[in-house]
Computed example of a mutant assay.
Amino acid sequence: MNALPSAASFGAALQAAREAAGSQDYPAGTLYVVATPIGNRADITLRALHVLQIVDAIACEDTRHTQQLLRALGIERSPAQLIAVHQHNESGAAQAVVERLLRGERVAYVSDAGTPGVSDPGARLVDAARAAGLRTLPLPGASSVTTLVSAAGLRADGPQASAFVFAGFAPAKAAERAAFVQGLAAEPRAIVLLEAPHRIEALAQSLAAAGDRLLTIGRELTKQFEDIATVPAHAFAGWLAESPQRRRGEFALVLHPLPATAAGDGAVDASAQRTLRLLLAELPTKSAVRLAAEISGAPRNALYALALQWREDADDDGA
């Protein structure tokens, strides 16, 4: 992958953005939620380039980081036009943004990378705007979640194959992280996780409990030293240990779906199925599955998959 483009490289892109997006309507008093590149600046969209030029202010997770990105894109905004809205001040800062919106200003929100509100700040700001009766206009773009899912090669051989669960970051404390990963074992669908480099080895040790279940690793996605690999979950720690470079950078992970043979009806006999149906009538799915597994001895993963399938069948029948 080539080096990142410079500010001069975006001159034509800024002109193209004005031509492609300039004729669209950009209402006043609107919060624009703008996805930004997760690594390669060339992944910025034309509409994002245009909006970042025309809004009255840009709320951002880190004003210094955003100023650097804007300058790299060839966009000049004064420091007074940048508003810090991050995880430590989001609730209070959101009200200041709402006041601007109520005055008829256009305000964009960007996180440090990717799509705001997806394991990044932004959700509280959007909620505050909604509560004030204001419009939020999302500008889709880069996301490490969908980027890695698209490259994971998840099989399409079952009703849950194309579905995935976004679990985000695992807890930092060892006991909580182990319980978190253990809870994932009951989920038959693919699971997307994010992790920082200083905690990736600890997560790898915890994920070893998933055994032969496939794990796709995305490291430094879209960047110059991007690395994508698929290994059994138990081999992840060994994969990391093969090179110091592999323990650097930001990570996205996809734990693949359970194989159909591990999640199908065949692993659950008629008695266990009857127990599960009775419990599902009275309890939430997870509680019903846990008790059914304890009573019948059937695999919890298979019971959970069966419960999800029954729920989907019921939804289809009611449609």
Results as ranks from 00 to 15, higher is better:
97 V>E: 04
183 G>Y: 00
163 A>F: 15
119 S>Q: 04
179 A>C: 06
176 E>V: 02
159 P>S: 07
154 L>V: 12
170 A>H: 00
183 G>C: 01
155 R>N: 04
92 G>L: 12
92 G>D: 14
178 A>Y: 00
147 T>R: 10
130 R>A: 13
119 S>N: 10
99 E>P: 03
118 V>P: 06
208 A>M: 05
133 G>Q: 09
135 R>L: 15
121 P>I: 03
138 P>L: 04
189 R>F: 04
120 D>P: 11
91 S>I: 13
144 S>W: 02
141 G>M: 11
126 V>L: 07
193 L>Q: 00
140 P>E: 07
89 N>V: 11
179 A>S: 14
173 K>T: 13
127 D>E: 15
160 Q>A: 15
124 R>H: 14
200 I>Y: 07
132 A>F: 08
140 P>N: 12
119 S>H: 08
208 A>D: 02
109 Y>D: 06
201 E>M: 04
108 A>V: 09
142 A>F: 02
103 R>C: 14
125 L>M: 04
196 A>T: 09
210 A>M: 14
134 L>P: 08
132 A>Y: 09
98 V>T: 13
112 D>V: 07
214 L>T: 02
88 H>Y: 10
99 E>M: 13
148 L>N: 07
140 P>Q: 11
87 Q>H: 07
142 A>C: 11
154 L>M: 13
189 R>A: 12
114 G>D: 05
103 R>D: 14
190 A>F: 03
136 T>E: 04
171 P>K: 01
103 R>A: 15
184 L>V: 00
185 A>F: 00
202 A>T: 00
102 L>I: 13
86 H>G: 05
174 A>W: 03
180 F>D: 02
194 L>V: 10
